[in-house]
């Protein structure tokens, strides 16, 4: 798997997959729906799949001395690697905004979602949606990327909409607090989202392996 991951990085990956990681900086933009950073990170990963399709990457990889199922797992591994790098950087910036920058004017008056463990939880849900809808959809054909990405795009806007609306509902304002108040509850939400991300990614990968076995290359 390590060799396949290196292959993904050296031959298949678009530079945009790495450049779009800079979207984590949206976490610092006041008055902006900061969850869109997760969408742009996934859009960067999408560019690598587009690159791979143009380069006939799936067939090349299937010809290597690896199991066909490992071709799928390598794609998931590369995707998760980029997502987790993005998540780690976003988590760092979230801590920065919750501590050092918590009293800075534009952040104090922010009506939209603030960086918090709940924000990180929703970011993981967007990544999970990508792994389920885009990766799962892509491996139906190992070729088509348009409809899977469109499905993911729609799901993202729904998730962002829910995330931005929830903390305005009575009794749910704790979802958007950055003061450390109800931090335990926020961390539970994050842990649940992490479990959803892991489970969805695992199940999507397993389904994709089954689908890919039946595809004629």
């Amino acid at each position: 798997m390590k060799k396949l991951l290196i292959k993904e990085m050296r031959l298949t990956a678009s530079p945009l997959s790495y450049i779009f990681l800079a979207a984590v900086l949206f976490t610092l933009v006041p008055g902006y729906p900061i969850l869109m950073g997760a969408f742009f990170i996934c859009m960067g990963i999408f560019q690598s799949f587009q690159n791979g399709r143009e380069a006939n990457d799936i067939l090349y990889t299937a010809l290597l001395p690896v199991r066909k199922s490992d071709v799928v797992r390598a794609k998931y591994a590369f995707t998760c690697m980029i997502q987790l790098i993005g998540f780690a950087a976003t988590a760092g910036l979230t801590v920065l905004r919750m501590t050092v920058l918590s009293r800075v004017d534009p952040y104090v008056t922010n009506a939209l979602m603030n960086p918090s463990p709940v924000f990180l939880a929703f970011e993981l849900l967007i990544f999970a949606a990508f792994n389920l809808l885009f990766l799962g959809g892509y491996f139906r054909t190992a070729y088509g990327i348009g409809i899977p990405f469109l499905s993911f795009g729609i799901a993202t806007f729904v998730i962002v909409g829910i995330a931005e609306a929830l903390h305005h509902l009575p009794g749910l304002s704790f979802l958007n607090t950055t003061s450390g108040e109800r931090l335990g509850l926020q961390l539970i939400v994050l842990a649940l989202a992490a479990a959803v991300y892991a489970a969805v990614t695992f199940l999507s990968c397993r389904t994709s392996v089954g689908r890919f076995e039946k595809i004629d290359l």
């Binding site: 292959k7 050296r10 031959l11 380069a55 006939n56 990457d57 290597l64």
Partner: peptide
Amino acid sequence: DFYKRKKIREIVSVTRSFY
């Protein structure tokens, strides 16, 4: 028909690592 814009040397250096 793979990686038509990559240098052959680069493609082969990856391929050889699998054998």
